[in-house]
Design a protein around this nucleic acid. Structure first.
Lengths: 163, 163
DNA sequence: TTTGTTTTTATGATATATCATATAATTTTG
DNA sequence: CAAAATTATATGATATATCATAAAAACAAA
């Protein structure tokens, strides 16, 4: 029954894809995670962005971005220095190692993305995107009262089904 | 061009869907994560399964399942006792609280799944599933030599691009 | 039966996600 | 300008993911 649910297919596919992607990076002897690469890529393209804005581009929250940036600094792929214009910020910049790593990883990423889409034409991908966008939009709404079958317990005894 | 973005759409959609799902559970005043609920559901349907098999059903590895099970025990949603047939195993069983929680959460899950698919007909969902299955299958292969632009470092000094 | 392999669970280390909060700096208000 | 609100980053706590490995039990092979 669970297997029939489309959301299981979604989870299954995205998890497999992540493993596939990471395997290609690791197989090439490169010591970086996909997530780190994503953030590094944004920093390269738009070094002026703050952590919140970086997060918006890679669908991560600010806290996750902060920790990934820390790792990028530890790995000497970027350097940070206090921003002159806003002392809360730290200006970031790819090191030579960071730029070289981008040069190595980018074609690998293009390659495994191509492999993952083998057998699909542009129409397929277009349809996939359309359907995903609909689901995404549906999931923007917040839960309403009338959608709730069981109310939160009113601090009294739990109802018949309550747990 | 779209191809480069489609995986972003996938990530974006699945992350939004997870937040949407968790929001509905939390909004109903229920203190459980989606992942915990998924594992609890499998235990209810097939209490004889081991952690590896549970993981296969919810796309998690054994270590993740082990830790989620620990939390379910701490939350008194399941009980464990040594198995008579195989002393490496622990027989699991939902507590009364666990069964009650399933009764409360199941309709909520059905509801938010329905909401997430609003505006999509059966054909759309079938197409989505077909395309995801193709991507999943593509991602089953392991990286090959000839797909590798840069070889792993031969234990000497890092190459020009290394890092 | 003894030895070696496999299976099952537990756990350490690290990375990421989420929520909440702390701290410092900037901006807005009065 | 001083107080209040906002913004940017850091970090603590908890949950999950992944990889590796340990420990115990079961199983297979000799």
């Amino acid at each position: 029954m669970l297997n029939e649910v489309i959301f299981y297919s979604l989870e299954k596919t995205i998890k497999r894809y992540r493993q596939f992607a990471q395997a290609h990076i690791t197989h090439a002897g490169i010591d970086i995670t996909i997530d780190q690469w994503l953030v590094l890529n944004v920093i390269r393209e738009a070094p002026e962005l703050g952590q919140v804005e970086i997060g918006e581009r890679v669908f991560k929250d600010q806290a996750s971005v902060a920790r990934i940036i820390e790792l990028l600094v530890k790995k000497k792929l970027i350097v940070r220095e206090p921003s002159a214009s806003d002392r809360r910020k730290l200006d970031m910049q790819l090191t030579e190692a960071g730029r070289e790593l981008m040069n190595v990883v980018t074609p690998i990423v293009q390659n495994y993305r191509r492999l993952a889409l083998a057998g699909l034409n542009e129409t397929d991908v277009d349809q996939l995107k359309s359907i995903l966008d609909i689901i995404f939009t549906n999931c923007l709404s917040t839960p309403h009262k009338h959608e709730t079958i069981h109310k939160p317990k009113p601090a009294g005894q739990p109802d018949a089904a309550g747990g």
